Amino acid sequence: MSTMTTRVFNNGNSQAVRIPAAFRLDTDRVAISRNAQGDLVLHPLHPQRGEALLQALRAVAEADEGFIAALEEDRQASAPAQEREPL
């Protein structure tokens, strides 16, 4: 593993570290922690693309099952169509 020196600077009330191109991350979010030796460790957080959509689709699927069951019950409970002579 290679080591490089980079710059730390203030960004508002926070500190920021310039990450050299050789260590470029493929995400815009990271988890940061400090290990037992006091080193800062960055873990890239890959986006959970579509997770909210999947949850919504699961909720709709559950609602659809209940809706379909209610329609079936209603159809079975209703009286048969009356036959009438055309006018």
Rank of each mutant, 00 (worst) to 15 (best):
V60E: 12
L45D: 07
A31C: 01
R49Q: 08
R58S: 03
N35D: 15
I19V: 12
A77M: 08
R34E: 14
R34T: 15
A22L: 05
N13R: 08
Q15G: 03
I19Q: 01
A36T: 13
P47I: 03
E72G: 02
V8K: 00
E72A: 13
P20F: 00
A77D: 13
L57D: 01
N11K: 10
T5P: 00
A21Q: 08
E73A: 14
F9S: 01
R49S: 08
A16Y: 08
E62Y: 06
R58W: 03
G12M: 03
I32H: 06
A31Q: 12
R18S: 09
Q37P: 00
Q48A: 14
T27V: 15
L53E: 15
D64H: 11
R29P: 00
A81K: 10
T5H: 02
A81M: 15
E65I: 09
H43I: 07
Q15T: 02
G38W: 14
D39C: 05
P80K: 07
A56R: 13
N10R: 04
H46E: 05
H46D: 06
Q76N: 08
S33D: 12
H46G: 02
D74F: 15
A61D: 11
N13W: 07
A79F: 10
R18G: 03
L71A: 13
S14Q: 10
V30A: 04
E72P: 02
Q55M: 02
L57M: 02
N35C: 08
Q55V: 01
Q55H: 00
A70D: 12
I32M: 15
T6I: 01
A31V: 04
S33Q: 14
L45N: 05
Q82D: 07
A77G: 15
A69H: 09
A69D: 09
S33V: 06
R58I: 01
Q76H: 08
R34F: 08
E51F: 08
Q76I: 07
I19F: 01
E51P: 01
V30W: 03
R29V: 06
A81W: 11
V30L: 04
D26I: 07
I32Y: 11
H43Y: 14
A70M: 13
V30G: 03
F23R: 03
G38R: 02
S33K: 12
A22C: 02
G66K: 14
